[in-house]
Each structure stands twice: as C-alpha cells, then as structure tokens.
Simulated assay, not measured.
Amino acid sequence: MGGSNLDKSAILRLLYSALTHTASAAKRRIVRFRQKSDYERFLHEWSMIDKSLTEASDAIRHLPFIQGFSLRVPGELLRTHAHDGIWIENDPLISVHHSTSTYKPVTREKGIPWGVQEIKAPIAWSMTTGHRIKIGVIDTGVDFSHPDLKQSLGRGINLLNRGTLPHDDNGHGTHIAGTIAAANQVHGMIGVAPRSTVYPVKAFDHNGSAFVSDIVLGIDWCVRNHMDIVNMSFGMKTRSKSLLTAVTNAYNAGVIIVASSGNDGKRKSIDYPARYPQTIAVGATNRLRRIAPFSNRGMYIDVYAPGDKIISAWLRGKYNEMSGTSMATSHVSGAIALLLAMRPGLSPSDIKAVVKRSMLPLRGTKAPRTTGELDVMRMLQAGER
C-alpha cells in the first residue's frame, strides 16, 4: 500500500475533538486505522498531548490489541472528515447475561450444587480438578473475601479503576467464579473445577454494564497474561468489528472463549460474541434436562449446560440463586478447565470439537443429534481420542 491516507491535521482534529467534547455532545466510538503508519502517527500525537493533559487518558482509551482507540467523536466531525484511512464504529454498552426473575438470596449452600452434579464433574475429581488452569472471567469483579473463593483467585485486573483490586459491586462476577472454581469442602460450596484459578477482569460496573472498548481491553489482558480460558457471560444484539477482531486475536493466540448465548428465548439468533464461530456458545438447561424457557436456542448454540435456579457465591460471603445463560457458561468454562488439566495441548478448535462430540442428547428436542448437554465424563473420554 502507498503512503499515509491521513494528514497530521486530520489526526489532530480527531484528538482535540475527543478532548473538548463532553459526554453529552458526542458518542463514544472506536476508531481504527487501515494503515499501521497512521495508527503509529496517532499514537505519537496522543502521547505528546497525554503528557501535557492529565485528563487525556480518560478521554481517549488506547486499544493496542486491535490497533485502535476509543474516544468521543461528535457527529459533525464524522460527517466532514469521513476519511478512507479509518474505520469508525460505535463503542456501545454491553450487559451481563442473567434473567433477574429468580434473584433470591440463599442463607447457606453446602456441598455440591445441582448443576455441578448434573454435568458429572464430581465423578471426574479423582482424575482432574483443573489444577493450574487459568480462567479469565471478564465480568463485574469478584468478592475476594468470600470463604469459598479465597483459595481459587488470582489478582486479576480492574479496568474501571486501575491499581485497585477488581472487587465486585454487583454480584454477577462472584456468582460466575463460584460455579467455576469454588473450593470450600468443609463449610461451603464446590465449583466445577475446584483447583483451577479464576482471574477476575472487572470490565463491568455495578449495573452490569461495560463499553465494548472495556471488553477489548479485558480480552487483551487475558491474552497477555496467558489465560487458558476466558469466560464471557455477557452479550449484545449488534455486531462489532472491534469485538470480533479481539475475539479472533485471542482465538489465534490459543485462548478458549466460552460465551453465553442470551436470555431472549429466541430460536434463530443468539447474542454476540457467542455468535462468532471462534467462541463456544452456551445455552441453558433446567433440572429436567430441557432447554430453559428463557434460553436462546437453535443452530448457533454449541452446547447446553445447567442455567436455571443455580445457587452460587454472592457478595459479603453470601449465596444467591440466579438463572441465565451466564450461569450455564460458567459450568462449561469449569468443565473445559477439567479437560485441559489432563490434556494441556488441546487448541480452541480441538476443545470445541470435543465438547460437540461428547454432548448428551437433550430431553424434549426434535433433533437430539444436533446439540446436547454438557457431560464432563464423556468429554474426558472424547479428549483421549
């Protein structure tokens, strides 16, 4: 390709508009450069400004993983300087996946929750407990003081407040972490892979909302810190080139991404990023081994797992019952950790093939062969082949 498409003044206009526009005046967008030279030039100009203005780093988020930036771009700039040299797309809000209808606190959860039992994880524990497998949970953080999680957590990162621990101010992330890796045999609950390690990546605020750019930063952190698995219990309806690029980069780096399909009860579509082929898309089942009414379903789903009335860890050392494809996703992440601890060489495509080969046909489905429910013992056997 020839020389740079963007002159310096265009780059500076973008930068200064991001710094001068308040939240109300302009939408947050992700800007990516078609040419590396333009990206590097923007990076250079930004670093010069960043040194002189402390608020610059708040206004402009650098997304090196996808060679881009998230910043506020006003509509008039979009119209007047629509350059060939850049891709601009919205940086929308994305939310965690849970159906709040069955949100109810539980006093105590002892032993093995029904979902962990259902997928036959306890039978596998004599062979594998997920030891040394690292799972990045991009979510609302985690309750670091929860007695059932203390042994199971790495430090992780707080993308919303750098330098502080990714403490959970919502509950969703703690619930996910509990299903994956809780380990308190005497007094508390046990998760699917009790000796795996969860690294909480706090990208979501107390409302369970995050920008796509936060997710991109979270995926970047997981790849750089050598996570084996990334749990993504969130989704959105619209596609995002930036999110796809980040997911593809992670997949190519050998990271397994498990994503929840969404809770709209739809038959023909599921949320992104679960809909991308580079992820393992999870739907939810209930105790009857049927697809839960809230779960999305259909051809995009790779596997179903328990997601209805799941009890797991909660804030302030408590427990909570929740339903959603989020809850199903954490069972799948834990199961993959059990398999990877036994077969560390398996690639993301190998893992997906094993998961699909080893599913148990569901009850009440017309075409039982196409998709089924997670079964850890069948997975471990299929992984041996």
Rank of each mutant, 00 (worst) to 15 (best):
T107C: 07
R61W: 08
K51Y: 15
S47H: 09
W125D: 00
I49G: 03
G136C: 05
R132S: 11
H83N: 11
P113M: 01
P113L: 01
S99V: 14
W125Q: 00
P92A: 06
L78N: 07
E76K: 09
P122T: 03
G85A: 00
I119E: 00
P74A: 01
I123T: 15
I112Y: 02
G115V: 00
W114P: 00
I123V: 15
K51R: 15
S57T: 12
K104V: 14
P92D: 10
K104Q: 14
E118K: 10
D58E: 10
S99P: 07
S99C: 12
E55K: 09
W87N: 14
S57V: 11
I94R: 02
K110L: 14
S47L: 07
K51G: 14
A124M: 09
T128I: 06
F65M: 02
A121R: 06
W46F: 15
G136S: 05
T100N: 11
V96I: 13
I88A: 07
T129P: 07
I119R: 00
E109P: 04
D50L: 03
A124F: 04
Y103F: 12
T102Y: 08
I88Q: 07
F69K: 02
G136D: 01
T80N: 09
E55I: 11
P113S: 08
T129Q: 10
K104C: 13
I60N: 03
W46P: 03
A56F: 04
K134D: 02
P122Q: 04
N90W: 05
W46A: 10
T102L: 10
G85N: 03
G75C: 09
I133N: 00
K134F: 02
P92M: 03
A56T: 06
P122G: 03
E76Y: 15
S52E: 15
T54I: 12
V96Y: 05
R132H: 08
W114A: 00
S95P: 08
V116D: 02
T80F: 04
S95H: 11
I133P: 01
V116Y: 03
F69M: 05
I123Q: 15
V106K: 04
T100E: 12
Q67N: 14
K104S: 14
K51F: 15
E45R: 00
I135L: 04
P122F: 06
T80V: 09
G130W: 04
N90M: 14
I66S: 02
K110I: 12
A56M: 05
T54S: 14
L93D: 12
P74K: 01
K104A: 11
I49W: 05
H62W: 10
L78S: 12
I135P: 04
T54D: 14
G111F: 03
V96N: 04
S57N: 09
H83F: 14
G115F: 00
R79Y: 10
E76I: 13
L71H: 04
I88L: 11
L77C: 06
H97L: 15
K134I: 01
P92R: 08
D91Q: 03
F69P: 01
G111P: 08
S70M: 07
F65Q: 01
E118T: 13
T100V: 13
D84Q: 07
T107H: 08
G85P: 02
S101I: 12
S70C: 07
T128P: 08
K110Q: 13
V73P: 00
I66W: 01
A121E: 06
T128R: 06
